[in-house]
Design a protein around this nucleic acid. Structure first.
Lengths: 268, 268
DNA sequence: TAAGCTGTTCCGAGTGAACGAACACGATCG
DNA sequence: CGATCGTGTTCGTTCACTCGGAACAGCTTA
């Protein structure tokens, strides 16, 4: 249990508390198994037990429990992830009606640009891909729906950050910005300066800061009360994302579409 | 799981701890909370505790554990389902490469028919919606991705059943077929007879047996080794699903597309 | 200021989760 | 054809840990 990624932001807890309980361990174990199956597609009881470092009987108990509720299924080759996760995942995806409206705009953007369009939200200080639509020319990437990327290294992420003040931004991105490509912004001050520009012109860009040879424009989606809902981006290969198209055509289209979206949300 | 031949001799219930296992209770509790949040969108600690009939501190412990791993998130109004479920759900959806190929065919069918097309798989004796694409004319339904319907009451479900022998079908659908609409097949023998027809012509139909005024055609998707992968259906309102279109056009298109799909899977 | 709600923390107590060994089953050996 | 390894399953025991209740804290309402 000791290996516990502590991602609490800047909170010098330290004293006293002494990590009370920390969490219900068997629940953590169950999700360890689920996440393991999410990467390995098929595993047997013994394999799971070895991978997690628990007794075979423990792995068996957990797998039985998960299977009984449809979170894993037995196949001839072993256990696989169950579709019940898909049900809950879709529930999370539609927990906010506005997300569904955002989806329509993502599809529209993908069709009109022939590129890839995505809708992301912020969660736990990270950007989460919620919707994606790929146009005919769109590039394939390995970023999965539900997966996460650093906010500071994507167009949509920076767009989202631009709706927070500097202090909140520092909280969200943390102290050190890990570089992902050669172009990743790694200085907080540089990021803050860039966000100021984003606020002025209304959209953010990403020039191969997360994926080599991939550029994107992203704009924040604002709720009627002023809070940010998420952000939408359009991305494509460097050789198509340049000149007039990258500097005005796509930004204009994006901002117009996001404006429509905000209106649709306001009157829904 | 019901068929649990418990032949332990002299099992005097009542004595302590007799009921071996049955599942890890705290894990079940955690998923109870997740499933609750899947329906209620936003709940506080107190509300969760009341709904599940547990102590407030217990609900708090569970929610904290889930939140620490991203399976729930704190919002100003309370806890909501976290996007980590979306990640695992997408992992389940792509656990089989063939599912992704099926998706392309579903999109193709939706575009060519302007109706709704779906791909389903069997899990725990139920049909699970894995992919859906709606054409411009498609009707909206409340059946969610990841959700389940009885196999015997949908076109795709019956298509899937047609790949099993009678005994296995009886196992899958159970003893009594609950009626959903006036047209639902409720007699097992009638179902088996219909499946025989399905085997002959290669596709199944659904005439408002699950949703009023909704008809569909469905065909099974067969793996190279002969086992069924799932099934694809095209569905639309009764007034468009009739005559030549319902009896030959759509079935032909569907069977041709499924044939393509099976070839794509075989050589992927 | 007090009362009501929320979420949080504390602590003790009884349960039940985890373990390890023994068991059953099938495949793959020799 | 018997032995051996692999799998998944079951069984008792024990101690860690989950649970529940009560006290605490933070915020809005009366």
């Amino acid at each position: 249990m000791s290996g516990h990624t502590n991602d609490t932001p800047a909170e010098t807890d330290g004293s006293g508390g002494s990590d009370r309980g920390g969490g219900i361990s068997s629940v953590g174990r169950a999700f360890d198994i689920a996440e393991l199956l999410a990467t390995e597609t098929t595993l047997g009881v013994t394999a799971v037990a070895e991978e997690l470092g628990v007794a075979k009987s423990t792995a068996h108990d957990h797998l039985s429990t998960l299977a009984e509720r449809g979170y894993v299924v037995r196949a001839p080759e072993g256990y696989r992830l169950g579709m019940e996760f898909l049900r809950l995942g879709e529930a999370a995806r539609s927990r906010d009606e506005a997300y569904e409206i955002a989806r329509e705009k993502v599809e529209k953007l993908a069709n009109e640009t022939n590129e890839r369009s995505q809708f992301i939200v912020e969660e736990a200080g990270r950007a989460i891909y919620v919707h994606r639509e790929v146009g005919p020319d769109a590039v394939h990437t390995d970023s999965a729906i539900g997966g996460h990327v650093p906010l500071y290294a994507t167009a949509a992420g920076k767009a989202l950050l631009s709706h927070h003040d500097d202090d909140r931004v520092r909280e969200l991105v943390g102290d050190n910005l890990d570089p992902i490509t050669d172009n990743t912004v790694t200085e907080v001050d540089a990021l803050l300066a860039e966000l100021e520009t984003v606020r002025e012109r209304g959209y953010a860009t990403n020039c191969a800061e997360n994926t080599p040879r991939l550029r994107a424009v992203g704009a924040p989606v604002e709720l009627p009360d002023g809070r940010p809902l998420g952000a939408i981006s359009v991305s494509g290969p460097t050789h198509r994302m340049k000149g007039e198209r990258f500097e005005s055509e796509l930004p204009d289209l994006l901002l117009g579409t996001v404006n429509e979206l905000e209106l649709n949300i306001a009157y829904a």
